[in-house]
Nucleic acid binder design. Structure first.
Lengths: 239, 239
DNA sequence: CTCCTAGGTGTACGCCGTACACTCACGGTA
DNA sequence: TACCGTGAGTGTACGGCGTACACCTAGGAG
């Protein structure tokens, strides 16, 4: 029976293998290329085979999210809450840089996954251990919002988004608009000009993402620290 | 010729009518129901007719975004930058409450639309007029991120997202987990419990969205004000 | 040896966006 | 009046999507 090559189907499918292949596919080809059909092809299998391991595409997405959220460094107990939170969030951000599809995938879901809940829970635990009241911890979590998972929530700089891994950015990453655009939006243009000049130690022209992220993070953490030091309580619901 | 009813086709299509109908459809039925086919049916027209007025679905989305961003109150010149920014952002948030599909639509696009650029430009202008350096204005815009457009960027509270306009939330909006979930995520459960108790003046159980939004907004604005008062410059790139 | 079962297959359906060729009422010109 | 170009709306068709459902089949349990 020479059909051996057929019978030894490559290592049999499993939920884990499906999820890992899906993450790899989304990392390399972009989330828009992640279809059940493409994924099945990558795994050398017919599309419907996937449904023996995930209920549907939505559950596949949820599983992928749990995989990547699981990559975030675990919390370290003890020590300064501020440093602990800062380090953990920067670790989350590193994960997101490896999986640029994750923010959109997480935000388009309507329910949190178990891994996300676990992450949030341990983050709240860090605040509570740092002496935060339940209320203050609650509001602070809201204030950090999705930044707590490392999201940059840009919206502002339209350049960065385009860069997919494949080509090394064929367009120069912007920062120079066509002049009629610059005239229409003078303040945006002014900032873009300044940012493309003073690139001290910044790789290309444009914004230093890491700096911007930490700027915002520290702005929040410093504000939070001040509230906590002042013994904030919900009676402060001012204005 | 009694076919008059056919010849007087209802008010002829136009880009504006298409965009307004699309916004209305997304508002009422959710962004996931916005297909070219559904939209055409709402307009009493065949799907391909839409393509005489918008290039493709992506351009339709961009047009819809420009429509709703145009609903944000215009900037008022003069006066306190902090109040001006605060008011404008709260106006943006009101717009988003009318168009809950907008955040996802905006974030999933890879380029800013003209209306968004104009909004950002005038926001930067407010900071600059308030005495901010180009650099500080730049970083501050990054730090506000998509919150500047009124985004709440929740990720935390899984309850709110479900609520579509149609049914009046058949499920109680959560805040009470099944007990085994509460045991697995004790800190999350603690906050949910506290938030569902102390609803002073809050409508249902759960979080007071408006309060959480303003809490985060003021945390940022207060931090920004402090930086600006202290004469922040890029040499402060510390840590 | 038989039967059950779990994992992989094949076909099919109803959506989606949209390319492309068409009809046909209209306004301008000769 | 006759023509004709133009542009809005039509009809058909294609390839891709998620996935329901019936089927096959290899391997283990009795």
């Amino acid at each position: 029976m020479p059909e051996q090559a057929e019978t030894l189907r490559r290592t049999p499918l499993s939920r884990d293998r499906v999820l890992r292949a899906a993450v790899a596919l989304a990392d390399e080809a972009g989330i828009e290329s992640l279809s059940m059909r493409n994924l099945a092809q990558d795994l050398g299998v017919v599309p419907m085979a996937l449904y023996k391991h995930v209920a549907n595409k939505d559950e596949l997405l949820a599983g992928m999210i749990d995989v990547v959220v699981g990559e975030i460094d675990p919390a370290v107990a003890g020590g300064d809450w501020k440093q602990a939170v800062r380090r953990r969030i920067l670790s989350a951000r590193e994960m997101l840089l490896r999986h640029p599809w994750a923010p959109l995938a997480i935000e388009s879901r309507n329910t949190a996954t178990p891994a996300i809940l676990a992450y949030l829970d341990s983050m709240i635990g860090t605040f509570r251990a740092g002496g935060f009241s339940v209320d203050l911890a609650h509001h602070v979590m809201h204030a950090m919002g999705s930044r707590i998972l490392g999201f940059s929530q840009e919206l502002f700089d339209a350049s960065r988004r385009a860069g997919r891994s494949g080509t090394p950015d064929p367009e120069p990453p912007a920062a120079d608009f066509p002049p009629e655009v610059a005239a229409a939006f003078p303040h945006v243009a002014e900032i873009a000009r300044a940012a493309s000049h003073d690139d001290e130690s910044v790789v290309g022209p444009g914004c230093d993402d890491q700096f911007e992220f930490e700027f915002a993070l520290d702005l929040l953490l410093d504000g939070i620290e001040r509230l906590q030091r002042q013994g904030w309580t919900s009676s402060h619901r001012s204005r």
